Amino acid sequence: MTTDTPKPPTTAGKTTFYQGENQTHPLFRIEPGICCQSAREQASELMGYVRDMTLAGLMDGDQKLIWASHYLSAMAKALLDDAELGMMKH
């Protein structure tokens, strides 16, 4: 008797990050098939960097760091949103 171990949920590959005027220019899409747990861990790591970069940018008055943290936070959000889609379909 064999028991099939259920596969962990994976990303849906539907979440796109947009930029530009009116958020109409797709910059990237999350790939389907990434383990949702891994995607969430990566998003958490990115958010840690976002926190550090935002504080450094504000303290130093460095707009480049603030903009970089903005884009990193959008990447983290896309990962989390797509992982959520993958978990809902599972």
Rank of each mutant, 00 (worst) to 15 (best):
M1C: 08
M1N: 11
T2W: 15
T2H: 15
T2Q: 09
T2V: 14
T2M: 15
T3Y: 07
T3L: 12
T3F: 08
D4T: 14
D4Y: 04
D4K: 05
D4M: 06
T5V: 15
K7V: 15
P8M: 06
P8Q: 08
P9N: 05
T11L: 01
T11Q: 00
T11D: 03
A12N: 07
G13K: 03
G13Q: 07
G13D: 14
K14P: 01
T15F: 03
T16W: 09
T16Y: 06
Q19G: 10
Q19T: 12
G20S: 05
G20Y: 07
G20C: 08
E21A: 09
N22K: 15
Q23I: 00
Q23A: 09
T24N: 14
T24S: 15
P26C: 08
F28H: 10
F28V: 12
R29S: 13
R29Y: 08
R29N: 12
R29H: 11
E31G: 03
E31N: 06
P32L: 09
P32Q: 11
G33C: 07
G33M: 07
I34R: 03
C35P: 06
C35L: 06
C36F: 00
C36W: 00
C36Q: 01
C36L: 01
C36E: 01
Q37L: 05
Q37G: 07
S38C: 10
S38G: 04
A39H: 02
R40T: 05
R40P: 00
R40D: 00
E41P: 00
E41D: 12
Q42L: 14
Q42T: 06
Q42A: 11
A43I: 05
A43G: 13
S44Y: 12
S44G: 10
S44I: 07
L46V: 13
L46W: 06
M47L: 12
M47V: 15
M47E: 10
Y49V: 09
R51V: 13
R51H: 09
M53P: 00
T54S: 11
L55S: 08
L55R: 09
L55N: 10
L55C: 06
G57I: 01
L58S: 08
L58C: 08
G61Q: 08
G61T: 07
G61L: 10
G61Y: 10
D62W: 05
Q63A: 13
Q63T: 07
K64T: 13
K64A: 13
L65F: 04
L65E: 00
W67V: 06
W67P: 01
A68W: 01
A68S: 15
Y71M: 09
Y71E: 06
Y71I: 05
Y71W: 07
L72R: 04
S73F: 04
S73E: 15
M75V: 15
A76G: 10
A76W: 00
A76L: 05
A76H: 02
A76N: 04
A76P: 04
K77T: 13
K77P: 02
A78H: 03
A78K: 03
A78L: 02
A78R: 03
L80G: 01
D81A: 11
D81E: 11
D81T: 11
D82Q: 05
E84Y: 10
E84C: 11
G86I: 01
G86M: 02
G86T: 02
G86K: 00
M87L: 09
M88C: 07
M88K: 14
K89V: 13
K89Y: 12
K89C: 13
